[in-house]
Amino acid sequence: MSDISEERVRHLAGLARIDLSDSEVTALTAELAQIVDVVAQVTNAVEADTPATSHPIPLTNVYREDVVTDDVLTQEQALSGAPETDGSRFVVSAILGEEQ
């Protein structure tokens, strides 16, 4: 059985910045517990020395030349989709936490 609790779901939702309602937390806790019980089978499907695959097609050293291209956006384009700007910068509400 998984160790999914409402408390853990709230913690995860905090990390993921989703303001879940109580009923969402309750529902998700049950669903996640069910899902995790199924997906946990991967743990027993592999050996400690099985190599991990993070890319389906193994490539290495894929680089870009150090030159400015026409992908650069104008300020207007950069700001075009923003909910709020001051004309040159994005506006956000007060920040409580410190930078990391």
Partner: peptide, 15 residues
């Protein structure tokens, strides 16, 4: 390790 790590290993086995 148990979840994401193992899943990436399953990927190797599938390949």
């Amino acid at each position: 390790d148990a979840y994401y790590g193992s899943a990436q290993k399953v990927r190797t086995l599938v390949q």
